[in-house]
Computed example of a mutant assay.
Amino acid sequence: MIRHLVLFKLNDGVSRDDERVVEGVRAFEALSGQIPELASWECAWNITDRPIAYDYAINCTVADRDALVRYLEHPAHQAGVAQWQGFATWVIADYEI
């Protein structure tokens, strides 16, 4: 099993209520029902306000490396990523559990 973690930081001047952000969140929230490789799926806003904190997170699992590649290449995932590229940066970690 592989855990895929993504932490997003909104760009300067971009707020959670920006329509692009609202649509980007909606796209990510819908992924669990669209991508069969996802064994688990969580996404949510950070609830703390600290200088080093990121704003939004995705935490999901897939069965193996092949499933991770299929997830990453899935058109619905790619569409969500394309949206977020316009208003955020992110870091990822993929590790076996």
Rank of each mutant, 00 (worst) to 15 (best):
E37P: 01
I47A: 13
E42A: 07
S32L: 09
R16A: 14
E42S: 08
V81G: 04
F28Q: 00
Y71R: 02
A57V: 13
V91G: 12
Y56Q: 02
C60L: 07
R65K: 09
T61R: 05
D66V: 06
V81C: 02
V22W: 07
I92H: 09
Y56D: 01
Q78W: 03
A30V: 09
F87R: 02
N59H: 10
L7F: 14
A93N: 12
R50T: 15
A88W: 08
A88I: 08
Y54C: 11
N59Q: 09
I47H: 13
H4R: 05
C43E: 07
F87Q: 01
R26S: 15
N59M: 10
N59K: 08
R26P: 04
I92Q: 10
F8P: 00
D64E: 07
W84F: 07
H74K: 02
Y71L: 02
G33Q: 10
S40V: 05
A27H: 12
S40G: 07
F8C: 01
L5V: 10
P75F: 00
C43Q: 08
R3M: 03
R70N: 03
F87Y: 08
G33S: 10
R20Q: 14
W45S: 01
E73C: 02
Y95E: 05
S40Q: 05
A67H: 04
L5R: 05
T48H: 15
T48Q: 15
R70A: 06
D66G: 06
A27Q: 13
W41T: 05
R26N: 12
I58K: 02
R3T: 02
A76F: 01
Y95I: 04
P36H: 08
E23S: 11
I35R: 07
E29V: 10
R50Y: 14
N11R: 12
A39M: 11
D64V: 01
E42F: 06
A88L: 08
R3P: 00
E29R: 14
D94K: 06
A93F: 13
E23N: 11
A79I: 02
C60S: 03
E96Q: 08
R20T: 13
I58D: 00
D49Y: 11
W90Y: 14
I35C: 04
D94P: 01
L5F: 12
L5W: 10
I92S: 13
S15T: 15
Y54R: 15
P75W: 01
I35S: 06
E29Q: 14
A44H: 12
E73V: 04
W45Y: 11
A39P: 02
Q85K: 11
E23D: 13
E96P: 00
D49E: 15
A27N: 11
D55E: 11
Q85F: 04
S15M: 12
A57N: 09
E29A: 11
L31F: 07
I52W: 15
R3C: 01
W90P: 00
A93M: 13
Y56P: 00
G80C: 05
I35A: 05
G86H: 06
T61A: 06
V21F: 02
P51I: 15
E23A: 12
G80P: 00
H4N: 02
A88V: 09
V6Y: 04
Q78N: 03
W90C: 07
R20L: 12
E73P: 00
I47S: 14
T61S: 07
A44K: 10
L5I: 14
V6L: 08
A88H: 05
N59R: 10
C43I: 13
V25T: 04
I2F: 11
A44R: 11
G86V: 05
E73S: 04
I47T: 14
Q78F: 03
V14Q: 04
D94Y: 06
Q83S: 13
